[in-house]
């Protein structure tokens, strides 16, 4: 820790990258400026909009507040890593089909966030609108109110929220069906890939 830069290793979308970064560099800037992965967007750079949402070790996180140096050794999945070759992730496909976006700038963050939401919900996590958070009450259904609350960390100024909620509900149902078909092992469309 004697210098102002750090040598780090990041596993991004299944590929390991060795980088030397200025300690001030955020994960967001490392992705955009060093790895040319510009799908992750910078909307506010202060954790106030969610445009930079990626999956960090499988959980959604705002890359703008994550120092790259502190992400050494961690696994990152960005929007560029969500599709399976030419086959879009169900969330991506649903955003496209339902017109869950307009200008598209918040979209990668919305999609990464939605994939995280589906996983968090599958893990039984309650939210701020869950009527009864006690474990005995069981997991809440992922209805429109739950989706709205859980997706509220992603601002969309074009106002695509109504379609976003529809898209997330549709994709969540597909992911759940995929899980069921795969024997409930969390290996559905959104299951394994987010932590890969």
């Amino acid at each position: 820790m004697e210098t102002n830069s750090s040598a780090i290793s990041l596993r991004v979308n299944g590929e390991t990258h060795a980088l030397t970064v200025d300690n001030r560099t955020t994960l967001l800037d490392a992705l955009r400026e060093h790895l040319d992965l510009t799908g992750t967007k910078k909307g506010c750079d202060h954790g106030q909009c969610g445009a930079c949402t990626v999956l960090l070790d499988g959980r959604r996180a705002t890359a703008c507040l994550q120092l790259a140096a502190a992400a050494d050794g961690r696994t990152v999945t960005t929007i560029e890593g969500m599709a399976d070759g030419d086959r879009l992730h169900p969330v991506q496909q649903a955003f496209l089909d339902f017109d869950g976006y307009q200008c598209g700038y918040c979209t990668p963050g919305q999609i990464c966030s939605a994939i995280g939401v589906i996983e968090e919900h599958a893990a039984g996590w309650p939210s701020a609108v869950t009527a009864d958070v006690r474990p005995e009450a069981g997991p809440p259904p992922l209805d429109a109110d739950e989706i709205r609350e859980r997706m509220s960390g992603n601002l969309c100024r074009c106002g695509a929220y109504v379609s976003i909620v529809r898209a997330v509900a549709e994709a969540a149902a597909q992911v759940a069906a995929g899980r069921e078909a795969a024997g409930g092992q969390g290996s559905g469309a959104g299951g394994t890939r987010v932590t890969a």
Binding site: T38, G39, I79, E80, L88
Partner: peptide, 14 residues
């Protein structure tokens, strides 16, 4: 659906 839709949902749109 939007012509640039695929580029926008995959992060390819620059």
């Amino acid at each position: 659906t939007r012509l640039e839709g695929r580029a926008k949902v995959t992060g390819a749109a620059r």
